[in-house]
Write a protein that binds this DNA or RNA. Structure first.
Lengths: 409, 409
DNA sequence: AAAACTTTGTCTATCGAGTAAACTAAGTCT
DNA sequence: AGACTTAGTTTACTCGATAGACAAAGTTTT
């Protein structure tokens, strides 16, 4: 049964429009809101009254006159509630308590030793509890918990498969909800990051955004028309397993030449060892690859150490990051041509090496993306750094709390 | 200024829901519609009354009783108007006159000799005029013209770039509108094909669909949540230029290893000549490609002839189609992993060779797509054959005429 | 065949949303 | 001080959806 229209829907829609307008463009007077939204002044007044009652909006005093009565300015009240955002990493759990505007009130993290669901759940609880207790008194209290996980999440919120944790079919959302008694939103780490950058970071005011999260693998969060695109069953965005080398190296996923083998931290091992196990041997002559077919001696296999070497001008490391940048650019080009986003935001742990990756990446995109696609395309790195996913997860909870109605004609 | 809610919107929304329900599930009684949509019986009656007045719906007589009064069945009246769908090909212009249900009333085509916009426009006019004249008397007459073109179309309907026609910045939509005085909808050929298959073909009732059109190139039409996804500026779907071979053959687009070089009719020339001009030579040893690095003797370079050879069991041709199938599968896998569609529909001229392409294609997808993505994925070939784009274009016109309002919560 | 029941579809009274326009409030400008 | 401007509220009204009563037209039971 589809969503049908009635007066309640109209009100919900308009109220959400008013709140959203104030939230994004505030401070605004009632008249401003009326003009911006096209709603009648009376309607705005009525809805504003309710929003004031709900403490979601506050009057911050008189504004400057433009030749008549001074306007009463309205502002979104970020303090009306709090949200908790969590990023479940493979080795680290990060969390933050935020207000409804994404302002961080408190931040914590804890290492994740064992990967089994029970241990992880315990660690998460231990980290979340103090945040809940630290939450200030607010009209709406803690409105929800958002969590980004390194794996695929289905529509119901079940973690279907998280290879790096070795999880399959874990109902983390349900367990958290019954533990803490607040609504929990769960999503892929890349989707959370995309939401974060779109709301508070490099993607503000962008309608069509692709966030590429590069770390131990690559995942993408795609925002289409301001909304996370999840695909038919919620698994969209597994772009790390886009093959950019049809007969390339064998990936753990069973496919070959997956993007993340060349453009994520997984590439380190590849440069180092360059075992040929996975490669298909050629029946015929003529090679045409620029891949590093001989091992490169890398002084380390972790990003923090490698960036240190890069900073010191270590030649092989620099060459490697250049190649990673090139491969990142190739995959991003594929996304750009297929999706035609307004903006690409690159985030994740690998962006620590931004400095050495960026030039080749941008050059490849400039060279290879289709002219019209790249003409108005913006490519940038994460603005929230390692906080993208945590803030995005918190925002997912806020967003669910505030509710949103959208109409397209 | 955003779409706000008022009673008119509510009515529009509900009316469109009622019409859509009858169109898709009819014949239905008013009570059926009420139950299916959740709308009140009175509301359905009122809206139905208007739809009857507009001749968009008709009462087809009494249905069977289920223990009480016999229901008056309602049916969408496909005859209330006509639409014209056009596919502008590189060598051929196809067109059809359809009713509002996509039923073909008349079909024509004409060869396209010269490619310049004026000639093409003249040919289109010549082909459309008789269709317009043949249109039967109907309450709404010819409600619109839809046209699918082999190139990129921006939001305003301008053909930005059509490489195979050599066009840049052609306002075909505007010219057709002033010539015929009816609304014109223009879109990419792949988008039109996607709309056709989704509405009348292999993608009925599918919400997330990717249509892959393989001919002289590859283009994709992506339907997300029942709606064509056009990206930020309307250029989404240029998946033919997704690189599946990072350092592969140089493409006319400036990139390398583009999918369509390996999996469309453009691949024929490649197998034949295999000039190395475009290839990057390797600095180092070790090749790892299964590509056909030596030329294959092909007896022809056109699909109709090659399929004939294939039918006769011509070895090289069969090997080539198998390789094309494999490469198609690789690209489709990339789309599946990234998009998580419910269904992939493959269409376009190349599907004439379906028989020899399909096995390898399906095998590759089964082998390489991520397990959860492929589990509920359906892959099939076009049901409308060479009519996908024409019918889809006509449907775009119908769809614009009927209007549609969508609400998401 | 009559009575009781069922199902379909319409009618009626009501609610509650947004709107325009009048109005009040509170400024600015000359 | 008076005219003008702008902000925000009040009032009267319109319109669409709804629940529930009702009418219409069947079927089933007695």
């Amino acid at each position: 049964m589809r969503v049908t229209g009635d007066q309640a829907l109209v009100k919900k829609l308009n109220k959400s429009i008013v709140l959203d307008t104030i939230r994004r463009k505030g401070p605004l007077s009632r008249t401003d809101v009326s003009e911006r939204t096209g709603l009648n002044k009376a309607t705005v007044s009525n809805l504003t009254f309710e929003l004031l009652e709900q403490k979601l909006v506050e009057e911050t005093g008189l504004g400057v006159s433009s030749g008549g009565r001074k306007p009463l300015m309205l502002l979104f009240n970020g303090g009306a509630g709090c949200a908790i955002g969590i990023e479940l990493g493979v080795t680290l759990v990060k969390a933050a308590l935020t207000d409804l505007k994404g302002g961080i009130l408190l931040e914590t993290s804890a290492p994740l030793g064992k990967h089994n669901p029970d241990t992880a759940f315990a660690v998460i609880c231990e980290i979340v509890r103090p945040l809940l207790e630290a939450a200030p008194e607010a009209p709406h209290g803690v409105v929800g918990i958002g969590i980004g996980v390194p794996g695929m999440v289905d529509e119901s919120g079940l973690i279907l498969y998280a290879p790096n944790l070795g999880w399959e079919g874990v109902d983390l959302k349900g367990r958290l909800e019954s533990e803490f008694g607040v609504p929990v939103v769960i999503d892929n780490e890349a989707n959370a990051g995309a939401a974060g950058e779109r709301e508070y970071g490099a993607g503000r005011h962008v309608r069509h955004l692709v966030y590429v999260s590069a770390g131990m693998g690559i995942g993408s969060g795609m925002i289409i028309d301001g909304q996370l695109y999840k695909g038919a069953w919620g698994y969209a965005g597994e772009t790390g397993h886009m093959s950019i080398e049809s007969d390339g190296r064998l990936c753990s996923c069973g496919s070959r030449g997956c993007w993340e083998l060349y453009a994520s931290e997984r590439a380190y091992a590849y440069f180092e060892s360059q075992e040929e196990e996975g490669q298909i041997s050629t029946q015929e002559s003529g090679s045409r690859s620029t891949e590093f077919d001989k091992p490169i001696d890398l002084p380390s296999l972790t990003t923090p150490e490698l960036t240190e070497y890069a900073r010191q001008g270590h030649d092989n490391t620099l060459r490697m990051y250049e190649e990673i940048g090139r491969r990142l650019g190739i995959g991003i080009t594929n996304l750009v041509n297929g999706f035609n986003p307004e903006k690409i935001v690159v985030g994740g742990p690998l962006t620590e090496a931004k400095e050495w990756i960026e030039p080749a990446m941008l050059a490849v995109i400039a060279e290879r993306a289709l002219p019209y696609h790249r003409r108005e395309l913006a490519v940038s790195f994460s603005e929230l750094g390692s906080r993208s996913a945590v803030l995005g997860a918190a925002h997912l909870a806020v967003s669910q709390f505030l509710g949103r109605v959208r109409v397209s004609l």
